[in-house]
């Protein structure tokens, strides 16, 4: 994993330099920079964050302080397929927890872990995606599924897993 990110970083340093340099000399840039880095890598690799901090002469600790504060930032790589279960109020009162429990079990995710060991799936919950009238909502790879039933969603995820196996 380590060398892989190092490699990735090296091949795209030029692009990253561009990303970072456009923020030089402007105020309040920590969050947009992290957002850009994450957009690029899919998460925040340590090397990239530290490299950017050094280049902009902002303390590394500040970057980490910010990165750990906001739920949008991921410090570890994420799975190939992202399954997002809405846990907003409307979805909760319509049974989103059942869906979450079911998927957690189906994907064999131990407590505190949300990406499968084979990196095929990341299961996450978010607060309200703003489609409450079709609650409960599950987003599978950016496709919004409204009025979702646990069994149907489980089936979809299973199918995705099978496709990955064959690929």
């Amino acid at each position: 994993m380590q060398s892989q990110t190092g490699f990735k970083l090296a091949t795209s340093l030029d692009e990253l330099r561009e990303v970072v340099d456009k923020y030089k000399d402007t105020q309040g840039t920590t969050i947009p920079i992290l957002q850009d880095i994450q957009e690029h890598f899919g998460y925040l690799p340590e090397e990239a964050v530290e490299w950017a901090a050094d280049r902009l002469e902002i303390p590394r600790s500040k970057f980490y302080g910010v990165a750990t504060f906001y739920s949008q930032f991921y410090l570890t790589p994420r799975g190939k397929n992202i399954v997002t279960v809405c846990s907003g109020t409307a979805c909760h009162v319509k049974g989103s927890e059942k869906i979450l429990n079911r998927l957690t079990r189906d994907l064999n995710l131990p407590e505190g872990q949300n990406t499968t060991d084979d990196m095929i799936f990341t299961l996450e919950k978010v607060n309200c995606v703003g489609a409450c009238s079709i609650a409960p909502v599950v987003i599978i790879n950016q496709k919004v599924n409204g009025k979702a039933a646990a069994s149907k969603i489980a089936l979809q995820v299973k199918k995705l897993g099978k496709e990955e196996d064959q690929a």
């Binding site: 920590t30 969050i31 947009p32 957002q35 302080g65 910010v66 739920s71 930032f73």
Partner: peptide, 23 residues
């Protein structure tokens, strides 16, 4: 400015801190 997912940032003084690039 894109928020980064923190409920407390809706509070005005926290929101300002967030625009300034802080926690």
């Amino acid at each position: 400015k894109l928020g980064a997912g923190a409920f407390v940032c809706g509070e005005e003084t926290a929101l300002i801190a967030s625009i300034e690039g802080e926690r």
